[in-house]
Each structure stands twice: as structure tokens, then as C-alpha cells.
Computed example of a mutant assay.
Amino acid sequence: MNDNHRSALIAGLRALADFLDANPAIPVPRSVYALHFPHGATDAEMCAEVDQIAELLDAPINQEFGHYGASIRFGPVEYKAVAVLAARRAQYEADRSYEGCIQPDPIPDQNAAQAA
């Protein structure tokens, strides 16, 4: 990530906070997530990057659902570095291979049922 992108992201987050502060009628989400996904060819490379970030965050490593990550929270705002490991990516692709093959039964039109 270059310094211009970093500066632009930080400026955008501050601008959003200022905008929401100045416009209390606009609803805000319950939480905000800033996610960083390491770029790497192997699980080991991505995990090594997450390990480095975890050290900077002084945060433990969390491994669940085929993800390897570390995070820090600021109230309802979370920064998380997460590597999606190869086995999880393969499972996701396998699951997606069925997309469009299975169709649910149609849901009855509730408006028509109420009119009857």
C-alpha cells in the first residue's frame, strides 16, 4: 500500500466521522469494520504478514472458520487483518459451484392470501 492510499483512507475516515457528527439525523451503523487482507501466494506468506500486524497491534492471533487473523477494537470500530487460508477458499469455490442449481419452492404471495 502506498503512502497516498494510506493518507486518502485516513482522510476519508476522518471526513466520514466529521460528516456524521455534523448530521445527527443520518443513522449510523451498529459497527464498522476496516479489513486488511494480506496479498500472498501461500498461506505461510499471508500468515506471516498477519503475525507482523498482530505484533504491531499487540493483539492475539485468532484462527476460526479457515481464517487467520488479528484485530483491535475502538468501541464499535474494528481493524482486522485476516488471511483467508487456501482450504477455506477451496471450500468456498466448491460451495459456489452449486450456485443456480438448486431453487427454493416459490413463496406464496402473502398479499393475495390476505385479500382472500
Rank of each mutant, 00 (worst) to 15 (best):
E49L: 07
Q63C: 08
A25M: 05
A115T: 01
D21V: 06
A41I: 02
E64W: 09
L9N: 09
V32N: 01
G40V: 05
P38T: 09
D18V: 10
D3E: 12
R96L: 11
A17Y: 05
H5N: 07
A25E: 13
C101W: 07
A113P: 00
P24D: 09
P106F: 08
D95G: 08
H5G: 05
V32Y: 04
I72L: 08
Q114N: 12
G69N: 06
V28A: 13
H5R: 08
M1P: 03
H36G: 12
C47L: 01
A17Q: 12
H39R: 08
F37E: 04
P27M: 11
P60I: 07
P27R: 15
A83D: 01
A116L: 05
F19G: 12
G100C: 07
A86M: 03
I61M: 07
V77R: 14
E93R: 15
N23M: 07
Q110D: 09
Y79N: 01
A113Q: 10
I107M: 14
Y79V: 13
E49R: 06
A90R: 05
G69A: 09
G66E: 02
F65C: 04
V32E: 01
L20R: 13
F74G: 04
P24M: 08
Q114M: 14
Q52P: 00
R89G: 00
A48T: 02
A11L: 11
L85H: 02
G69M: 03
D58Q: 10
D21R: 13
A34D: 04
P104R: 14
A34I: 15
E45C: 02
R88M: 12
A15K: 15
E55N: 12
V28F: 03
E93S: 14
I10P: 00
A116R: 10
K80I: 12
L56R: 15
D21C: 08
P104N: 14
F74N: 08
A15H: 14
N23F: 07
Q91H: 01
A115N: 04
V50A: 05
A59H: 04
Q110V: 11
P24C: 06
A59T: 10
Q110M: 15
S7D: 12
Y33S: 03
A87F: 02
A94F: 03
S97W: 02
L85K: 03
E78T: 13
N62T: 15
F65R: 11
P104T: 15
A17T: 10
N23L: 06
S71I: 00
H67G: 07
H67T: 15
D95S: 09
A115R: 09
Y33T: 06
R73E: 10
D51H: 03
N111E: 14
Q52A: 13
I72K: 12
N2F: 03
V84E: 02
A70L: 09
P76S: 15
V32K: 03
D105W: 11
L9D: 05
G66L: 06
H36D: 10
F19K: 13
A90T: 06
I102W: 02
V77D: 14
D3T: 13
D58G: 04
P108N: 10
E55L: 11
D3A: 07
I26H: 05
A11H: 11
L56Y: 11
L56V: 15
A112G: 02
H5Q: 11
C47H: 04
A54D: 05
L9E: 06
I26M: 10
G69R: 00
C47Y: 00
A70E: 01
M46W: 00
I26C: 06
T42C: 11
E99A: 15
S31F: 10
T42W: 09
